[in-house]
Simulated assay, not measured.
Amino acid sequence: MGIKWLSQYSMSDILQAKNIVPSNTQKYSLVDINNAIKEKLGVDPVIECKKEDDENFISEIRICFTKDLEPTDCDGVVWSLNFYGQTILSNCDKSKDITYPHYISNSLITQLHRLIYWLQWFTL
């Protein structure tokens, strides 16, 4: 199921469809990133940032599932920001745009590592 979800819920594909692509110079708004995911999947994601040198970098995007393994809104237990009348689950600094960093290595091994890490988090 994890392999199927990796392709079905590919955040890079979802974001790319809205012209949000990895770049070390281009920045995107938290609202645009959240809306791209919500429009495609119909659920509220959690967007986590790593803050470095007073900048936001996407570090993780989570989607939540019911016990029946159907996508559902994440519940906001961790963080919830009210941003222009929209509730967004994130730890990102809402006053700053976000860098979606481009990494040189995007090999199968990297993707498998991310899948395994995600599966460990999901099964907790």
Rank of each mutant, 00 (worst) to 15 (best):
Cys92Gln: 01
Val78Phe: 13
Pro101Trp: 05
Gln86Ile: 08
Leu81Ala: 13
Asp73Ile: 06
Ser95Met: 04
His102Trp: 08
Ile104Tyr: 11
Tyr100Cys: 03
Gln86His: 09
Asp73Gly: 10
Asp93Leu: 09
Ser105Arg: 11
His113Asn: 10
Arg114Cys: 06
Tyr103His: 14
Tyr84Glu: 15
Cys92Tyr: 02
His113Ile: 09
Leu108Pro: 02
Asp75Ile: 15
Ile109Thr: 07
Val77Arg: 06
Lys94Arg: 07
Tyr100Pro: 01
Phe83Lys: 10
Gly76Lys: 03
Ser105Lys: 10
Leu112Cys: 08
Val78Thr: 06
Ser107Tyr: 02
Pro101Glu: 11
Thr110Lys: 04
Gly85His: 03
Tyr117Asn: 09
Asn91Arg: 01
Gln111Ser: 11
Cys74Ser: 04
Leu108Cys: 04
Arg114Tyr: 12
Ile116Leu: 14
Trp79Arg: 00
Ser80His: 01
Lys96His: 07
Lys96Pro: 02
Leu89Cys: 05
Ile88Trp: 00
His113Phe: 09
Pro71Lys: 12
Tyr103Met: 11
Gly85Asn: 10
Cys92Lys: 02
Asp97Met: 05
Lys96Tyr: 00
Asp75Glu: 14
Gly76Arg: 03
Asp93Pro: 08
Tyr103Cys: 07
Ser107Asp: 09
Thr110Arg: 09
Leu115Lys: 07
Gly76Asn: 04
Asp73Trp: 06
His113Trp: 06
Tyr84Gly: 06
Ser105Thr: 15
Val77Asp: 09
Val77Gln: 07
His102Ser: 12
Asp97Lys: 03
His113Ser: 08
Gly76Val: 08
Val78Met: 11
Trp118Ser: 14
Asp93Cys: 07
Asp97Asn: 14
Ile116Asp: 06
Tyr103Leu: 13
Gln86Trp: 04
Tyr103Thr: 15
Val78Gly: 05
Thr99Gln: 00
Thr87His: 03
Tyr103Ile: 15
Cys74Ala: 12
Lys94Gln: 14
Arg114Ala: 13
Leu89Glu: 00
Gln86Asn: 11
Gln86Pro: 02
Leu115His: 06
Val77Leu: 08
Asn82Tyr: 04
Tyr100Thr: 03
Asn106Pro: 00
